[in-house]
């Protein structure tokens, strides 16, 4: 049995230890925000936060998570009450097909939780591992810039469990 802390909830799961975290999130916990893109850590569609850091969950053995808290896009808001980044992505129409967006938002979230007012260069460098095949990168950047201008996003705070 593996214990996993996801979006503030503890789960006990009967999965093989080498199973990628992404499969556990999608198949066992039915959190379908993070997507399977390339399966090789090249596209970022599967990005989630582990202990506040953006990671490719497709290459992350679930047994490696340990006590570190996992956060997915589902933790940021709801359809009725989207979080700041989700709202900005909607306002800027940063989504075309939408497949990359959960990963994009989570990677941006990690930056804005740690850096209050990132520079354009910091934003671009930080976001560079995530790809959008539709080519909405400019709108994605605009959405992130808008939230960045408002200042640091609150982190998960009490969810954080020390490893």
């Amino acid at each position: 049995m593996i214990e996993l802390h996801v979006n503030g909830e503890a789960h006990r799961l009967d999965v093989a230890p080498e199973t990628p975290l992404l499969y556990v999130l999608r198949d066992d916990l039915k959190l379908n925000g993070a997507k399977f893109g390339c399966g090789m850590g090249q596209c970022g569609a599967c990005t989630v936060l582990v202990d506040g850091r953006p990671v490719f969950s497709c290459l992350f053995p679930v047994s490696s998570v340990g006590a570190r808290p996992v956060r997915t896009v589902e933790s940021l808001g709801t359809v009725e009450r989207p979080g700041p980044l989700q709202k900005a992505f909607i306002d800027h129409q940063a989504v075309q097909c939408g497949y990359c967006i959960a990963g994009m938002i989570m990677r941006a979230q990690a930056l804005l939780e740690t850096v209050a007012h990132p520079s354009e260069q910091q934003i671009r460098e930080h976001m560079s591992p995530n790809l959008c095949r539709c080519g909405t990168h400019m709108r994605i950047l605009a959405a992130i810039r808008e939230v960045a201008a408002q200042g640091r996003l609150p982190g998960a705070g009490p969810q954080k469990v020390s490893a």
């Binding site: 230890p17 080498e18 090789m40 850590g41 290459l59 992350f60 053995p61 679930v62 490696s64």
Partner: peptide, 11 residues
């Protein structure tokens, strides 16, 4: 070997 299976073997 288990870590390899989960994190490395894909490539």
């Amino acid at each position: 070997r288990q870590v390899f299976a989960g994190a490395c073997a894909e490539c």
